[in-house]
Design a protein around this nucleic acid. Structure first.
Lengths: 245, 245
DNA sequence: CGTCCCCTTGAATGAAGTCAATACGCGTGG
DNA sequence: CCACGCGTATTGACTTCATTCAAGGGGACG
């Protein structure tokens, strides 16, 4: 089985055998496990290492004083988390496991050495960072402009495409470990209304969702409803022209 | 008058005379003017140069097919826009002037050369990028969790502090060129409701806003209302420990 | 078998959007 | 100079959408 980070970065550029070897070695360093719901880093902590997600789902979130919580991003296998946070003194948000999660901790030093000697990887990491920023922007649009049904539909499209791109979806189905409460905290609505909205999507024949399994019965329809434009994911292997090895 | 970019980057670290000279030189290269409301870059364009904002206010936005528009970020003097977009093939959003705007175009080559020879600047740019990402996350929280009044109050706090940090606010007043329609597109509400909400803040004695001039009469009160925590702006000169010249 | 968490559904409440009318400032051109 | 148009801001009345409150069902697990 290929390393999920390699798989992900190769969406953008082709890596040399050496690049891949280094990445796999780094990913096998200090590996840690977390239970579902367990915090991986908390707001206020001083960031130490770079985290590399190897398995499971996690999320970034912020919490207001009065308890309201907003999920800001999801992490899937192959994702890196805050490659450079060590520039900043303290975390301004928290990261929590949704399912049981496996992460590799990469020390700042190991990471910097890697960046020094592997320009192709650096470029792929740049790309990854830019895509993450684009996703964050799209979430802003989602929360600001889309209706409840559009918001949920959009999120489903995004995660479904991302899962596909890293080989974690087959045909039109994938795992869906996110509870409706978490979905509510993601889309800025109440969990009651999430329930009703998902039912709406079901009744439109767009999705089937039960037992933590999602089937997208009509992806084009779902994308149309959500006004989903995948350009912001930059999945078109845009670094292909860099392939000259 | 110091260059606004220098002023901004020095929030994080101290720059050498040479660093500053280089930045000022780069900022005086190809300078362009835009009228209020004019687009600077449009979604779908291939990004060419890095834009450095020297004067005026601008915004990043995305538009849905049916016309709904979401403002995703504001640009103030000293801000850089998408230092690395040339990795991506095309823009997934647009940038537009709010007031008349002056920008310096920095070619990719000039920029890369600068990064190669000025590690202190590189570090400050990293910091800037991380802060921008943090701001984008906070906007996600804002749209997802805060009420109308909290949203507007939070945005005012954020911009007011940023303006202060770059010397564009005096005591408790600053320019406020943003129309209520733009504010509506920023906070995901209708312009009618923005009007009512601003009135609410006025009646609470928190702000005075007229003739494109904002006075924050009670900043602590405004921050309390918005549950504003400034940690995400990372304004505490966190790079001070790098000062050894 | 009971507890806990998650999901669902109904009914009442509340927040924000829409529609519409009016007012104000500003620039343009008669 | 005034008239007009345009964009912006304000205010009221009504509607729509989403939240809250409440109750009940179902599955997982000790």
């Amino acid at each position: 089985m290929t390393n999920p980070v390699v798989r992900k970065l190769e969406l953008f550029t082709r890596l040399s055998a050496d690049d891949k070897a280094i990445l796999s070695r780094v990913a096998n360093g200090r590996v840690r496990q977390f239970n579902a719901r367990e915090d991986i880093i908390r707001e206020g902590d001083a960031p130490r290492d770079i985290n590399l997600f190897l398995g499971g789902w996690a999320c970034r979130y912020k919490q207001l004083e009065d308890g309201r919580r907003q999920i800001i991003a999801f992490f899937l296998p192959g994702d890196l988390c805050d490659m450079n946070v060590f520039i900043l003194r303290e975390m301004d948000h928290s990261i929590s496991a949704i399912t049981p999660v496996t992460v590799a901790e990469v020390s700042r030093e190991a990471f910097e050495e890697l960046m020094l000697n592997h320009p192709r990887i650096v470029q792929a990491l740049w790309w990854d960072g830019l895509v993450n920023a684009a996703v964050q922007r799209e979430w802003t649009v989602n929360l600001g402009q889309r209706t409840a049904a559009e918001r949920i539909a959009h999120l489903i499209c995004e995660l479904f495409l991302k899962l596909h791109s890293i080989g974690l979806a087959r045909a039109n189905t994938c795992e869906w470990p996110i509870t409706q409460i978490e979905l509510a905290d993601t889309t800025g609505m109440s969990s009651v209304h999430v329930s009703r909205t998902i039912n709406e999507l079901r009744n439109l024949g767009l999705i089937v969702l039960r037992d933590r399994q999602l089937t997208v019965s009509d992806l084009p329809g779902l994308m149309r409803l959500a006004m989903f434009n995948s350009n912001y994911l930059h999945l078109q292997h845009e670094g292909a022209y860099l392939d000259a090895n």
